[in-house]
Design a binder for these strands. Structure first.
Length: 413
RNA sequence: CGGGGCAUAGUGUAAUGGUUAACAUAGGCGCUUUGGGAGCGUCUGAUUCUCGGUUCGAGUCCGAGUGCCCCGACCA
């Protein structure tokens, strides 16, 4: 897209109050706008990034048989009442202002809703297993929103639910999801640590979290230096920390961001909604369930926390808002001509390009903007690049971008 | 929810209790300029968060409220 048409702009100054790096950079670069504490709008650049993360999630969910669905935001209170979750204090409630519309809870997790739906379709062991997921905005009344996209009152989440005939089958699938999660985060440019967490009242055993080590993280985890085993603070409190329980290696304490989690739910929800099936012997049994979450917007924030430098964001290739940043320098008609035609041919070859065609902008400003926005490939067209060699220009090139000779562009990208 | 901090053009800052609230940046117009936020000129832009109080006089002092940020608690 033409940068002259992009309705957002970068700003030189970070918003006064913001401390978290992801908030500062994403707001300065115009990726997001904060409407209230913990409530963000995603603007063109930010939405492109979030959509790319969603694309990756969809691909990897499809690879493990996840079927995409879309569940209601307004969840009738009776659902959460059925499992005793109606009074959890992260709840946002909603009801009609002047008409009797019933009472709703803004959905923050959809086990109940989907379990009831499943009970409408699952009767036999032949109907199992299956897994369904959605990508949706969730609302939680966080007492304290903080750290930009890392802890919002509203956030974009992928929630996957799986349904099985036996605990063994659930655990088999649990491992599949685990692998898919590692892939997703890796493609997003994040190295995650698989961390043991204590299960809550709604799970059948311990759960696991995917943690990204970062100073701003609000979680504390303990990681074995030898075998990479990790557990979170709650688990360590219960059994006391000193040595790795797996290999007796040394344990190190780290701050981290929880970008995903997986829960073996067992029969809690299927019991609450009488979700049963008939097995091979003709016996009625409760379906065994699992649930698996990824915070997409939080993942985006975590990526910025991990991938940035003094000048701005450095997006990992797969989730960068554009494949390349084409920068036009100068008003020379020949230069313009070349960059216009290059823009056209890049688009024709399926490269998503942000084309900085803005006039009246100085060189430094264009580069500063590009550094801030952080598209990992950059193509500069100027009188100089039209001359033979740009080796001397390459020298000035900083580590975050690649300066490409126009002749090579098509094969390089 | 406890504790702390902050609130002034779109953004970032300034202004002993004393004219018409200033500067930078962003924005408009004109000219110049094009490999790291370039220059000159000109114009525009503010109920100084809200309500109340003290005072001859409040952006400034006092009280309450609201919002935002940070620490903690919380985080099925």
């Amino acid at each position: 897209m033409r940068q002259s048409q992009l309705f957002t702009k970068t700003s030189r100054e970070a918003p006064k109050d913001e401390q978290a790096l992801n908030a500062k950079l994403l707001m300065r670069a115009g990726f997001v706008h904060k409407n209230s504490a913990g409530v963000y709008s995603f603007l063109p650049l930010g939405w492109r990034v979030l959509s790319k993360i969603a694309d990756i999630v969809r691909e990897e969910m499809a690879a493990i048989g996840g079927q995409e669905i879309f569940l209601p935001v307004l969840v009738d209170k009776r659902y959460y009442k059925a499992t005793g979750r109606a009074n959890v204090d992260i709840t946002f409630e909603a009801k009609g202002k002047s008409h009797d519309t019933g009472e709703f809870i803004i959905g923050w997790s959809h086990e109940e809703v989907l379990t009831e739906i499943a009970s409408r379709f699952v009767f036999s062991f032949k109907d199992l297993p299956f897994a369904a997921y959605q990508i949706q905005t969730k609302a939680r009344a966080e007492p304290r929103a903080k750290s930009g996209l890392l802890r919002g009152r509203e956030f974009v989440m992928k929630d996957l639910y799986s349904f099985h005939a036996s605990k063994e089958d659930l655990l088999r699938y649990y491992e599949e999801v685990k692998k898919a999660y590692f892939k997703i985060f890796k493609r997003c440019g994040l190295e995650t640590i698989y961390t043991l967490a204590s299960g809550g009242v709604f799970t059948m055993s311990n759960t696991h979290e995917f943690q990204v080590v970062a100073p701003l993280g609000e979680d504390t985890i303990y990681v074995c230096q030898k075998c990479k085993y990790a557990e979170n603070k709650e688990v360590s409190k219960i059994r006391g920390i000193s040595k790795c329980p797996k290999c007796s290696g040394q344990i190190q304490e780290k701050r981290s961001i929880e970008v995903g989690n997986i829960f073996p739910l067992g029969e809690k929800y299927s019991k609450a909604f009488d979700l049963r099936f008939t097995d091979k012997k003709g016996e009625k049994k409760y379906v065994v369930m699992g649930s698996y979450g990824i915070g997409l917007s939080r993942t985006m924030g975590a990526v910025v926390e991990v991938h940035h430098d003094q000048e701005g964001i450095i997006w990992p290739k797969e989730i960068a808002p554009f494949g390349a940043h084409l920068i036009l320098l100068g008003e020379e008609s020949k230069v313009k001509e070349v960059s216009e035609s290059l823009y056209g041919s890049l688009k024709k070859h399926g490269v998503e390009v942000l084309y900085d065609d803005r006039e009246q902008k100085t060189v430094g400003e264009k580069f500063a903007d590009a550094d801030l926005i952080g598209i990992p490939w950059r193509i500069v067209i100027s009188e100089r690049t039209l001359q033979k060699d740009c080796a001397e220009l390459k020298k000035r090139n900083d580590k975050k971008v690649k300066l490409v000779k126009i002749k090579n562009v098509q094969q390089t990208i």
